[in-house]
Each structure stands twice: as structure tokens, then as C-alpha cells.
């Protein structure tokens, strides 16, 4: 493996007294797809948001494409152009049409001219299968369609890395498939992806690596076969059994070491 595309070293993050990340070390290589799983409050969303500095780490380093984001002198806006981010709540710009959602960032941030931005927008809407919705407004789209537009919007900026923060968690179950299909396509095309998700099927089939987090640390890191198929740690086994078969879970005592919900 050449130099890692994403590199996280000794990352800590606290909100007040609440330490959400307690020393994370993680490397993601070029073209690698890494799924981050874990119970709510494990810090997985916070970790993802630290990778493009939407959250300011309390301690530690984050490097993307060899540039250190945590360097106070770095031009963060320039680095973020190389990192696409997809949110749980889509966060499309509701006052703009689908096409404008894709063209405005290109023009304002990358300085592309109107024609070029429109061309790139059309290409990317085509990729996510929504070319016919080009002139629609976000409010008239289903959740699944909005999320695909959000992915196209990120792709239109030509990112080297894509971050997904529970991209299907806000969707009705029957709409999840379309979004996962787009992500699968991206993975096949060789995009470097970091995906916080509860979709175990996706993790098993698409991810090169699965990272299990709990209590602000990485508990397990390996291939899907290892982490999901035969987890070594009790905590991983416990989480997976509750996730894969929620009906079988037992009522349990709240454990005192649970940290607040970071995502």
C-alpha cells in the first residue's frame, strides 16, 4: 500500500467534560472502503466529522492526501474541496434546484464557469440516476433521491475521498437500496471511502475493512469476514448480536462508561 489517503494519529475529542474520542489511530489507503460501525455514542460520527474538521479535534493529527488538516496554518477550505461529505439528513440547499445545488458550489468554490459547472452537474446526476430531476427542488424529492443528489453534489467537486455519515439512517427502508447501489458503484470505481453505517450487508459485501468502535476507541479493525464474521472481542459480538437480531436482545443495566451520543 502506498501512502495512506486518510491518516488519523492519536486523535482525542472532548465536548466539555465529555471525552468522546480517546485516542484513535487509523489509516485508510487509496481506493480503500472502510466501514465504521459501533453503538450510538461510540464516537464514530465524531471521528468522521474530525476527518474533514467539521469538529475540531482536542488533540492529535488528521492528514488527508498527505496534508495535515490539524495544522492551524492550513487552508482548510482548500483541503475540504478534496473531501466529499454526505450527511444523514442530506442537507441539500432547499432554496436551490437540484442542478443549482450541484453548480453553485462548483462556481463559487472552484471558480468553474457556468457551462462547465452545468456539464459536470449533468454528468454526476446521470451517475446517480437522477438526470430527469435536474430542475426539481429538493422538497419534491423522496429521501432516497435527495441523498443521491447530495452524493452527486459532493462528487461534482471532484473529491479524492468521500465521507458518509450514516447516509441511509434517515431513509424509509425501501429507499435504502438505491443509495447503497450508488455507493457500491463508487466503491467499484476505486473511490476512497469512509462510511459510518449500520448497514451490515453493505459492510460485509462492499467494505475492504470494518472498524468497530466503542466508548471512543477502536476495539476491532479488520476485514469484514474477521470483524463481522468472527469477532474476537466480546463487545463486538454483543453489538453485532443486538444489531443483527434486535428481537433477541435482553433488557440490560445501563453501563456507567457509556459516553454521550456523538452523532
Amino acid at each position: 500500500m502506498s501512502r495512506p489517503e486518510i491518516e488519523v494519529r492519536g486523535l482525542h475529542k472532548s465536548f466539555g467534560d465529555n471525552e468522546v474520542l480517546r485516542g484513535i489511530d487509523l489509516e485508510i489507503g487509496q481506493g480503500e472502503v472502510v466501514c465504521v460501525i459501533g453503538p450510538s455514542g461510540s464516537g464514530k460520527s465524531t471521528l468522521l466529522r474530525c476527518v474533514n474538521l467539521l469538529e475540531e479535534p482536542s488533540k492529535g493529527q488528521v492528514l488527508v492526501g498527505g496534508t495535515e488538516l490539524t495544522d492551524p496554518d492550513v487552508d482548510i477550505d482548500a483541503v475540504r474541496r478534496r473531501i466529499g461529505m454526505v450527511f444523514q439528513q442530506f442537507n441539500l440547499f432547499p432554496h436551490l434546484s437540484v442542478t443549482e445545488n450541484l453548480t453553485l458550489p462548483q462556481r463559487r468554490v472552484l471558480g468553474r464557469d457556468k457551462a462547465q459547472a452545468a456539464r459536470v452537474a449533468a454528468e454526476n446526476l446521470e451517475r446517480v440516476g437522477l438526470a430527469e430531476k435536474a430542475n426539481a427542488y429538493p422538497a419534491s424529492l423522496s429521501g432516497g433521491q435527495q441523498q443521491r443528489v447530495a452524493i452527486a453534489r459532493a462528487l461534482a467537486m471532484g473529491p479524492e475521498v468521500m465521507l458518509f455519515d450514516e447516509p441511509t439512517s434517515a431513509l424509509d427502508p425501501e429507499l435504502v437500496g438505491d443509495v447503497l447501489a450508488v455507493m457500491r458503484m463508487l466503491a467499484r470505481e476505486g473511490m476512497t471511502m469512509m462510511v459510518v453505517t449500520h448497514e451490515m450487508t453493505f459492510a460485509r459485501e462492499v467494505a475492504d475493512r470494518v472498524v468497530f468502535m466503542d466508548g471512543g476507541v477502536i476495539v476491532e479493525d479488520g476485514t469484514p469476514r474477521q470483524v463481522i464474521g468472527s469477532p474476537r472481542h466480546e463487545r463486538t459480538r454483543h453489538f453485532l448480536s443486538r444489531l443483527l437480531d434486535p428481537a433477541m436482545a435482553e433488557v440490560e443495566e445501563e453501563t456507567s462508561d457509556q459516553v454521550g451520543d456523538g452523532g
Binding site: L54, D77, R80, R81, I83, N91, P105, A154
Partner: peptide
């Protein structure tokens, strides 16, 4: 305006 709008804009590279 929801907080996510600013986050989305920043993540796209807007100052």
C-alpha cells in the same frame, strides 16, 4: 436556518 446547511456548505469548501 438549520445548522446542517452551514456544515454542508463548509464541507464543500465554502469559506
Amino acid at each position: 436556518v438549520p445548522k446542517g446547511q452551514m456544515e454542508a456548505a463548509r464541507s464543500l469548501g465554502f469559506s
